[in-house]
Amino acid sequence: MSATTLRLGGWLSLPVRRRSVVVGGALAAGIVVIALLSLTLGRLGIAPADLMPAILGHSTGPDAIVFEVLRGPRLVVGIAAGAAFGVSGALFQTVTRNPLGSPDVIGLTSGASAGAAAFGLLWTGILPLPVGALVGALAAMALVWLGTGRGFSSPARMLLVGIGVSAMSLAFVQYAITRVGVEQATVLASFLNGSLASRTWGHAALIWVSVVVLLPCALLTTRRLQLMEMGDEQADALGARSAPARSWAVLIAIGLATAAVSVAGPVAFIALTAPQIARRLTRSAGPNLVLSALMGAFLLTLADLLTQQSPFAVQLPVGVLTAVIGGIYLGYLLVAQWKKGTV
């Protein structure tokens, strides 16, 4: 047996899979390593000996600026935004019972892009893109909710309407880009790829509060979501009341993805790939929320580290890299499973 039971007195007993614990521990360690590297590497990197003082706010001079302004917020935002994307994707994939169900496909991310583009078009100069992203994402989800004719209760309709909303949003983005000035188009394009450059502690606070509040809510629905993987009818028969569980899960997923998109832009592929990779590494059925969170944080910070430090990707928006890394890894996993015949 690969599962043991975590017991605490008579009131707590949770089944824990050893493989999940190992994968989770490895991912957490990986995130720590990435964090250290992203603070210390490069021309402006903080020397390892000066790292603790910088983090505690005791240092002055360049180290303080590097930590407080350039790299600290960026890293902290990256971890939480990655986790939020990962959990959001896991929730969407479970309620739609479709590996493609993710905020990318369902129209949320494109809606955020369209919102940002619209704000770029309307308020030239100030470009409050994150606010636009927030509004756009929520508007897109409202459209999907209305478009299905029965809210979020039908996974297939949700995906189809989502793809439609997504296409319309992207068309609008293209339109907006041709209408704004060259300079703005550049800023807009960088945001639209998803970027962690020049984040502030304000962004960090927003995304961390969202994750700290919404992740526990998501964890409370885990057991019912597991049963819903077997079909709503089976879940209902087991006493897991699928309809309210689905509504909660979708609302939490929208909340997390919207928060992530508004601080990091529509970063591609993290929400889609993190849960899939987590599931394949742990070889267990869904929704694997904690591991999806860790995997999302790991992927996003890794991609961001590469955009900061690797010679071939210098200063690319991180979204370009996540698309490449996520896409390649998912492709590799799918091919490996096709060969084994277990897709």
């Binding site: 019972r97 597991q226 993987e229 077997m230 079909g231 009818e233 089976q234 028969a237 087991l238 006493g239 599931r279 394949r280 070889r283 267990s284 059925a285 869904g286 277990t342």
Partner: peptide, 17 residues
């Protein structure tokens, strides 16, 4: 559900379970 169990016509087996 503790008194009555139901197996629907086509239950879905979750992936990798």
């Amino acid at each position: 559900a503790r008194q009555l169990a139901m197996l629907p016509q086509s239950p879905i087996a979750p992936e990798s379970i």
